[in-house]
């Protein structure tokens, strides 16, 4: 039997299309729209082409926060990924101990971002914060409000405290998925612990690590709340990252055009770097 050709199936795709349009395409296109016009009021607008893009790309404020942003995300990945793997390797595989570990690890993940900021803001104060007070009484001059290095250290510490658990949990589940026979085979081969890690555990963890690296990169690249709560991006501009610069520009100065261009570039950077990570980590996967 020959079925008559109809377009009815397209109607079934329509709800999804509408949903995606409202959630992603329309907001994004609005920003694109802003980024290529100079808007004075509802009726006065001029098409400016790529002018805002050129302006943004030459803005030194932006260059500075971009560099800071890359250093921050790089540090986050360099600390959290190995630390997460280490924590996962040391966790007990079964028994009541593993449940306790999982619960403790999951706790930081449940704390809202601005609460994390507030916790560490108070915790790190030299006068009433246990952490700041302890450091200072040990003779270490620690003051995140005055010293850029201390502010950086505190923001990094916050992020590590907050998100290493995620990497650890991902790796833990990855490790549990390795059949026992692999370890047995390695023991029979007289492989060292390092060889077991390098040739069995790490390759088997690759997929969860890929997710971990991407999530931590994207998330840390968009960091806003923690430094904002801690010092408002200071001292000076030392902890002002991209999203804070963008927010100042968009809702502080109300420069919608440049902010739109900035948003698009910001988005493309995240996309590009994520793609680079993904490609680098999967390039020799075979088929």
């Amino acid at each position: 039997m020959i079925k008559p050709y109809t377009n009815k199936a397209w109607y079934l795709v329509l709800p999804v299309f509408a949903l995606v349009a409202f959630s992603a395409i329309i907001p994004l296109m609005t920003v694109v729209n802003y980024s290529i016009q100079d808007i004075f009021d509802a009726n006065t607008r001029y098409f400016v082409g790529t002018e805002w893009y050129r302006e943004i790309l030459n803005d030194t404020r932006l260059h500075d926060s971009l560099v800071r942003q890359f250093i921050f995300s790089g540090s986050v990945l360099l600390i959290e990924i190995p630390l997460g793997i280490l924590v996962a390797l040391m966790m007990p595989a079964r028994g009541p101990g593993s449940v306790v570990c999982l619960l403790v690890l999951a706790l930081p993940l449940l704390v809202p971002l601005n609460v994390v900021g507030t916790i560490w803001q108070i915790f790190g104060r030299a006068d009433i914060g246990l952490f700041g007070w302890a450091l200072n009484s040990l003779g270490i001059n620690y003051n995140y409000a005055a010293n850029p290095m201390d502010a950086w250290f505190t923001v990094l510490l916050m992020d590590v405290w907050h998100w290493t658990s995620l990497v650890a949990l991902l790796c833990y589940s990855g490790l549990r998925a390795i059949p026992d026979a692999y370890y047995q085979a390695a023991r029979i081969d007289r492989a060292s612990n390092w060889a077991v890690f390098r040739f069995i555990q790490l390759p088997k963890l690759k997929n969860v690590l890929l997710i971990g690296v991407l999530l931590r990169f994207m998330d840390s690249f968009m960091i806003y709340t923690e430094p904002f709560v801690l010092t408002g991006g200071g001292p000076g501009n030392s902890t002002t990252f991209l999203s804070q610069t963008l927010t100042k520009m968009a809702v502080g100065q109300f420069d919608i055009g440049p902010a739109g261009a900035f948003s698009i570039i910001y988005f493309l950077i995240i996309l590009l770097v994520s793609w680079l990570f993904y490609t680098a980590m999967t390039h020799n996967d075979g088929k």
């Binding site: 059949p179 026979a181 085979a185 029979i188 040739f199 069995i200 390759p203 088997k204 020799n284």
Partner: peptide, 13 residues
């Protein structure tokens, strides 16, 4: 000793 298992155990990478 050597051992061969029911699962195919090789170093993946």
């Amino acid at each position: 000793v050597s051992m061969v298992y029911q699962q195919f155990i090789n170093y993946p990478n």
